[in-house]
Design a protein around this nucleic acid. Structure first.
Lengths: 238, 238
DNA sequence: GTATTTATCAATACACTGTATCGCATGCGA
DNA sequence: TCGCATGCGATACAGTGTATTGATAAATAC
């Protein structure tokens, strides 16, 4: 199907291939993260990532062998943005609170982060360092010398952190997805909720709408985190 | 572009439209859940769901206006499968443990469930009933009369439950995704992990691989749940 | 009982996805 | 200066969600 039978005399030379922009895994991941930050995970396609880097989609397959791998790289990159406490950053509780709060901060900058966490084993170097730091917080804590116990305790904190942030961000996203501002979203869903609540089947939910003050995200997050940490503290003998 | 100019005499009658199978939201959701249970969320496409019901993809748009809505319905349907404790099912702790354990059981039957939870507000009737039951557990508990406090406490439990189950299932899925059995997956990832651990940068992770006994999922889940519940108990005055 | 409107659904179409294949152009070794 | 290897672009394909369209069946009006 050669569609260019023009004579050589008037056929233009091929555009002297403009030195293909040098590429790297790092650049690819940064481009993908930029797209995801701006327009959500749906905006991350190999074509769009390639376009940002002046490359076709197939060019990326030299650096990854699957889109899943790109997502894995994105996750590990974000793990790398979370500062980790050093060995003398306080006691176990301070260290865990530190990791948790900083994780939340980063997850709010990259709203897609927690979405990717569910359903993907995290084996990248930064993810491993993150887990290592969490476990290290339990070094020398009575009752948590057993690594299985430390692992479970940290897993509990981590489960709470991720679950809690997911819920917080889901709410934020739902508002914006419905078009414009928060008010517009609430205007859409509130009447429905009121109708449900009027049935009387949800007395406690009714109180949530009627009485709750909805403390801001950070406050609520810390309150829950303290429940979890209190629970661990309650299991330190002595 | 009528491609059937045959004369009426030999043109076959249109196949007397075989009474289009009656459809319902319920049937659509069940079909979608069946596909997801069998082959994961990627297997849920409007074409495939339609095919199960002997219908074209566009037929479904009478019952939903978007695929997102189908996913919302699936989530609420699964919520409906979780039995909720009645008012006299024990104290707050028993009720919360009950909800959590049953949620885990259902989430293991529908591995895609937690995947959908992150990133979607849950406003269906069954989801609301679920939340209501969680809040109801705190009725009459000293220190949790304030609905904000009850909401946060339950949110903590819920965050842990979802985060924890997600992690558990992510591991299980990763094993199977890599082709065949658990051994095959570990054979692929273990050498990499060992090389990372040999660097000495992850002393606690090293212990996880070397010393940990990896108690089974249910045991670990309950251990973590007890941390969280202990933490709440520690905040009940008196 | 016939004609006309209305609702329902299948077919078609479109823009877009991830990825396999293939052929060319470029740079390197001889 | 030639031959070859390698990396990249173009092309292709099967699949996605959904807008549009056109036909058919049901419901209504006369």
């Amino acid at each position: 199907m050669s569609e260019e039978p023009a004579l050589i005399w008037e056929r233009p030379e091929p555009p002297s291939r403009p030195t293909p922009s040098p590429l790297s895994r790092e650049a690819i991941v940064r481009a993908a993260i930029g797209l995801a930050d701006a327009d959500g995970l749906v905006a991350v396609s190999l074509r769009k990532v390639g376009a940002v880097l002046d490359a076709g989609p197939m060019r990326l397959y030299g650096y990854l062998s699957t889109k899943e791998e790109l997502l894995d790289l994105m996750v590990d990159e974000v793990y790398g943005e979370i500062p980790l406490p050093g060995p003398d950053a306080g006691d176990w509780r301070a260290k865990l609170a530190d990791i948790s709060v900083r994780t939340r901060a980063v997850a709010r900058r990259h709203e897609w982060f927690t979405e990717l966490l569910s359903g993907r084993p995290q084996l990248g170097p930064n993810a491993l360092a993150h887990l290592e730091a969490g476990l290290a917080a339990f070094e020398g804590v009575p009752g948590f010398a057993n690594i299985d116990r430390a692992l479970r305790a940290y897993g509990t904190v981590r489960g709470y952190v991720i679950g809690s942030i997911s819920a917080e961000l889901a709410e934020r996203r739902a508002e914006r997805a419905s078009g414009l501002d928060e008010q517009q979203w609430q205007a859409r869903s509130t009447p429905y909720l009121l109708r449900m609540l009027e049935t009387g089947r949800y007395p406690n939910l009714y109180r949530v709408v009627a009485e709750a003050e909805h403390p801001d995200g950070a406050t609520g997050f810390l309150a829950g985190l303290n429940y979890v940490l209190d629970g661990i503290a309650a299991n330190i003998p002595g």
